[in-house]
Design a protein around this nucleic acid. Sequence first.
DNA 1: AGAATGATCCTCT
DNA 2: GAGGATCATTCTC
Length: 177
Amino acid sequence: MSLPQAFYDRPTLEVARDLLGKVLVHRSRGATTSGTIVEVEAYIGESDPACHAAAGPTRRNALMYGPPGVAYVYLNYGIHYLVNVVTEATGSPAAVLIRALEPLEGLDAMRRRRGRLVKERDAAPGNGRLCIEDRGLRPGRVAWGPRIGIRVGTAQPWRGWVEGHRAVSGVRLDRTP
DNA sequence: AGAATGATCCTCT
DNA sequence: GAGGATCATTCTC
C-alpha cells in the first residue's frame, strides 16, 4: 500500500524516522525492484548549510520548495544519482535522502543495471512507477548520528539508520574541516 | 564562455 | 591518506 501525501507533510525528522522500514519500489517495463529503507538523512530548510536550498531557491532545488511526497533525484560527482523525497508544506524546502536499502525484489535486475551506467531519468513518470510503500515491516532499533560525506552541517544528528543492519553504509571517519 | 563545486565510491599506496 | 572517475548546476568574468 502506497503512502499518502500526508505522510510527507510533516516535520522532516519525523518523516525520516518513519521512512525506516518502509519499502522503496520501482516498477519498470521488464522488472520490479524494491528494497527496505535502512538508512536516511534529513536536509532541512535554508538554514541547513548542507541542504541544496541553503543558497535560496534555484532551478535545481525548485522541487524542494514544492509540495511534499515528490521524488527529487540529483546527480552528484557526475557519478551517482541520489534519491530524495520532498517533505513539509509547499514553500518549506526540505527533503529526506534515502541512503541505503536492503534489496527485497529484483536483485537480478539490480545486478544487471550495475554493469551499465544507470541513467534512470525517467524514474517516476506516472503513478506507482516509483513509490514508497508501507508493508507493515518494523525496523529494528533506530540510531541517529551526524550526516555523512558533507563538509558543513555535520553538527546535526540528522542521519538515521537501523542499528547493526548490514546494508547500512560503512561508518566514515570524520573529515577534517 | 569558462571555472569551480560536490549529500560518492573504489583502488592504490 | 590520496586521488581519480565524470557531469549538471551554479558562479564568475
